[in-house]
Design a protein around this nucleic acid. Sequence first.
DNA 1: TAAGTAAATACCTACCGTCGGTATGTACCT
DNA 2: AGGTACATACCGACGGTAGGTATTTACTTA
Lengths: 226, 226
Amino acid sequence: MWVSKEGDVRRRELLDAALALFYEKGCEKTSINDIIDRVGVSKGAFYYYFNSKEDVLEAIAVEYAERILAAARPIVGDDRLSAAEKLNSMVSKVLEYKETLAKERTTLMRVFLQEENLKLVRRIFEKMIAPAGELSTEIIKQGVREGVFDTGSPEDTAELFIYVGTAMKAALAKLVIESQDIKAIERKLHFYEEAFERILGAPKGTIRFAEPMLECIKSDWDTLHS
Amino acid sequence: MWVSKEGDVRRRELLDAALALFYEKGCEKTSINDIIDRVGVSKGAFYYYFNSKEDVLEAIAVEYAERILAAARPIVGDDRLSAAEKLNSMVSKVLEYKETLAKERTTLMRVFLQEENLKLVRRIFEKMIAPAGELSTEIIKQGVREGVFDTGSPEDTAELFIYVGTAMKAALAKLVIESQDIKAIERKLHFYEEAFERILGAPKGTIRFAEPMLECIKSDWDTLHS
DNA sequence: TAAGTAAATACCTACCGTCGGTATGTACCT
DNA sequence: AGGTACATACCGACGGTAGGTATTTACTTA
């Protein structure tokens, strides 16, 4: 007849199917029927594990945000790194330009730019902003102590840092998808390096995340336009 | 029986009703039936003027964006103003802290922060980003010529300027609604003044939009927490 | 110039499929 | 026997469509 699965195996199946469908056709256009059809269960099963469609969105957002934050935390906690090193690492880490395959990342680009996924993206951002703000604040405070950063309010600067970071991510994704040539993308990246330095009050050359990211972006570009 | 109206009178009625409902209950939760009920027409009438619900959203976004841009253009074109003056004016103008009543602005705050209205807000932003980018670029170029701004890429700086501007608007709106005390809001405003100066490479004290905006924000605050 | 009429415009009613969500039933495990 | 983990059958509301009808306009003709 049907299979009963223990623990949260079913829940995981539903969550994974939902996420896959969000990637494929956007989360607004994904219906509950789509999700249960893919898993091969009934609507009753879905509503056994989730209270609503929103509930799925929320769960996915929480997981996603936690995954990113989990990757960022070790960097901040690493005593051997300087503030500038931490910050550079954070950027590529949080923007997923590390340990993420080009194929997955290019998919994510589309997902994040799609209008259908605005709610999901916003939810993720909201889950991240507070903890990411704290992490960034810590780094910036360290930088001020080290004398490389100069700002009167590390908290506000951290917030702005995150805003500008997401803006950069969006801008880069757009350039890659619109198949601008690599040179233009490189220019944009270096512009943002300098922008970050200005915002943080850091000396020129302190912020350097462009080169490692460029390698990734090149393979993204190849993945998309091959 | 029913009244036939010429031109786009009906269209306007529907658009106005839609916008009012978006304000009241969010645009996702507003159904076509809600709109036509308010105007007192049939669904057929609605689909005579619009192809879809999305169509209404788009129309409203276009109108909104155009209204803001129309307010911004004269500032940029004014030959008597310096780049810094133009930029300061632009900020309060585009963020609607001029010639907008406190009551209307506080409503708009909620509208813009509501999750239900994400699509509308995004659409408006997309309509504005390109033209607003051009306007800002012009100002920044003028500033570079005048020697008050210092940036290698006015275009990129303009783009970032807009991103940070919207970020600031959101941050301020949140503070006002969450009823933070005026002092905190004032601090945030001055932080962003300095942030803009850093981004633009402008000397300290060049960017000054806080004071006139603070007046408005105070009345917003009173409107909301009275 | 007034009346007649065809065509285009402005609008209505009734209906469809799909959606998110619910109520109730049932097989399985301990 | 009772809770767990599903399935089934159904609901109201939604966005959207089809096909018809009232109203206005434009043109003709007596």
